[in-house]
């Protein structure tokens, strides 16, 4: 029996301890916000927090969660349902396209902001380059992170809104 807390609730699972945490979350706990992308820790779609650190749940045995605190995308908003600033920023910047990678992107970004409240571009590159977005929304993800971080100056990030306004009637 593996016991851990997930999004604040204690759960016990009678599963093969070597099974990746991803499948315990998706199949045994029925929480499908965390995605399967590669099963090899190469794409980041399965990113969750284990004791606050971003991990790839597709290669992390469920046994590693024993006694730990797991947070998934479903647990990122406040108990009252208020979105995490990153989730709101993702909406404000219209960051997702297909959206499949975005749970993992947001979880990676949340772990980054937890330790570095105002990351620069290099810090964002370092924290986010494990997460692939095949729709290529990196520019918007970067901007969303900076927006959520409350950075006054969003340096080096293109603002499509400003440009389209400016040249709409060219």
């Amino acid at each position: 029996m593996i016991t851990f807390r997930i999004n604040g609730a204690e759960r016990s699972l009678d599963v093969d301890p070597t099974m990746p945490l991803l499948w315990a979350i998706r199949e045994n706990l029925g929480m499908t916000g965390t995605k399967f992308g590669c099963g090899q820790a190469q794409c980041g779609a399965c990113t969750v927090h284990l004791n606050g650190a971003a991990i790839r749940s597709c290669v992390t045995p469920v046994a590693a969660a024993q006694g730990a605190e797991v947070t998934t995308i479903e647990g990122l908003a406040s108990a009252e349902g208020e979105l995490h600033p990153l989730q709101q920023a993702w909406i404000d910047e219209q960051a997702p396209q297909c959206g499949y990678c975005q749970s993992g992107q947001i979880m990676s970004a949340a772990a980054l902001l937890a330790t570095n409240p105002n990351p620069d571009d290099a810090a964002i590159d370092a924290a986010m380059s494990g997460n692939i977005c095949r729709c290529g929304m990196y520019q918007r993800i970067r901007k969303s992170i900076k927006r959520a971080a409350g950075a006054e100056a969003v340096v080096g990030v293109f603002d499509p809104q400003a440009v389209t306004e400016e040249v709409k009637h060219v």
């Binding site: 590669c38 090899q40 190469q42 794409c43 964002i124 590159d125 370092a126 986010m128 380059s129 494990g130 997460n131 692939i132 095949r134 290529g136 990196y138 520019q139 993800i141 970067r142 080096g156 990030v157 293109f158 499509p160 440009v163 389209t164 040249v167 709409k168 009637h169 060219v170």
Partner: peptide, 23 residues
């Protein structure tokens, strides 16, 4: 057979893209 031998552009590789629209 995997993202390591069929790679995709990642955050650190992504260029700044400026889009200018003409109607």
């Amino acid at each position: 057979n995997a993202f390591d031998n069929y790679p995709a552009v990642r955050m650190q590789d992504a260029p700044l893209i400026e889009t200018h629209i003409v109607n």
